[in-house]
Design a protein around this nucleic acid. Structure first.
Length: 245
RNA sequence: CUCAAUUA
């Protein structure tokens, strides 16, 4: 089973979900019974290429074969449904999670938080974040990054910055993505000097800026016709090997 | 062997 699962996961990773499904069928034919992980891999694979209905049918197939979906199974479909905008079914599944004694975890909530943010339901997102904490679930760096990103894109920079501070106070270590999200937020508001300062600061904090960091700032600089500064950053990228020349 | 977040 492990061998087949690894193979399927590899195919899904490169979006060759049909080949993954072939492997899935082959294992069955050879008398190897797919386990929950096999289904989880296929469900995520289908969600990734937006074939959510296939994912749902596999989910139902699990029930028929008396396989009990675990938290990862739920999280994967919920995330797939969220990303394809089929929110109503999501809430049913969240209820089902509670009823089946596998309550949503921080990852489930991260998916939900992300959709709320991306659909401009910022207030609901903030409420959900509080609800997560109230339930005694520790938000992690992902959770914070998602909400900070939502706040930045919803033009609520101040709140985003407060949350970023809060994250530091709580002793979390922001990673490259967290910084990138904050930097993008500053760029959106045209605060390019602040963005560049934060870029320096992240490096001081032991977090190396990556290509996204630079591209974000460069793009913003060019929009403001700050061609010289942009060029300097481009050179910096080349020096750091972030840009092939 | 399986789940969530960033520029374009």
């Amino acid at each position: 089973v492990v061998t087949y699962n690894t193979l399927m996961d590899g195919y899904c990773l490169v979006n060759e979900v049909n080949k993954a499904k072939d492997a899935f069928n082959t294992m069955t034919k050879r008398g190897v019974t797919p386990n929950v992980r096999s289904y989880n891999i296929m469900i995520k694979g289908y969600c990734k290429i937006k074939m959510v209905d296939e994912a749902i049918s596999l989910f139902k197939e699990m029930h028929r074969k008396n396989l009990v979906p675990d938290t990862i199974t739920y999280n994967s479909i919920i995330d797939g449904l969220c990303k394809s905008g089929r929110i109503s079914y999501v809430w049913e599944l969240v209820d089902e999670m509670h009823n089946s004694g596998q309550p949503p975890n921080v990852i489930t909530y991260s998916s939900l938080l992300d959709t709320l943010c991306k659909n401009n339901h910022l207030d609901k997102a903030i409420a959900l974040f509080k609800k997560i904490e109230d339930q005694g679930i520790q938000p992690n760096v992902y959770t914070y990054t998602i909400l900070i990103d939502g706040l930045c894109k919803g033009r609520r920079l101040k709140t985003a910055q407060d949350l970023f501070q809060h994250l530091l106070i709580e002793g979390f270590h922001p990673n490259v993505r967290t910084y990138n999200v904050m930097i993008n937020g500053l760029c959106i508001e045209g605060l390019l000097d602040e963005a560049m300062t934060l870029c320096t600061k992240m490096e001081d904090n032991g977090c190396l800026p990556d290509a996204v960091t630079f591209e974000t700032i460069i793009r913003a600089l060019l929009e403001k016709d700050e061609k010289d500064k942009a060029e300097n950053l481009l050179r910096a990228m080349i020096t750091r090997g972030l840009l092939k020349v």
